[in-house]
Structure formats: C-alpha cells, structure tokens
Amino acid sequence: MMVALIVLPVILTAAVTIAAMLYVASPLVRESELPRASSADGLARRLELVEERDRALAALKELEFDHRTGKVSDRDYREQVGPLRRRAAETLRALEPAAKPDRPAGSRRATPSRAKVRS
C-alpha cells in the first residue's frame, strides 16, 4: 500500500511526460518542411494591393448605403463617389494579369455579371 502511494505518482508523472513528449515530437516526424507560398515576401506587395482593393470596394459600398440611409447628403455623395470609384478601379487594374503572369485574367473567378449597384 505504501509502495503504491509512492510509486503511483511517479508512474503517472512519467506517463504524462512521455505523452507530452510524443505529442511535441510528432510534427518533426510527420509534417513536411515545405514552406508555403504565402510566406514568400515577394507576395507582400500583391497582398497589399488586394487589401487596398477590398478597402476601396468596402468604402464604396458603405458610401452607397450611407447615402441611401440619408447619412450622406446627395452633394457629399456626388463629391466622394468619383474619387472612390477611381481608386477602386486603380487597384483592380493594378491586380490585372501583368502583375500575375501565370494565370489568365478571366479565369480567376467566374464573375456573375448581375445587377449594377450604381445607385
């Protein structure tokens, strides 16, 4: 009984330690070392452009909605929509094939050409 009281914690500790070590070591054996493309720094510029495009699109979307709710007056809307559209278009152009020669421009996404949102 006394022996069990001393030995049991030791066994338990050893078991936990071994289990933890196996878990920690497992990626070293099982996973591949291949770095993913996104970690390459050359893509940083492209990511920046993509983010810029999404920001510009979101800003346009928001401006339209704010205009519709009345938060942005007609005049403010007319003043702002032009530059915002131009900025968004610039990012779209910057992201076109030249920046990405390995894939044809159209195949990136199937863009359903639906209702225009020019309100």
């Binding site: 920690v24 591949s32 770095p35």
Partner: peptide
Amino acid sequence: RRLLSSAVNA
C-alpha cells in the same frame, strides 16, 4: 515549419 509546429504542440 516542423519545429514551429512542434513548439505549438508544446
């Protein structure tokens, strides 16, 4: 990457 994965597991 593998070593990093192992650090996460730790």
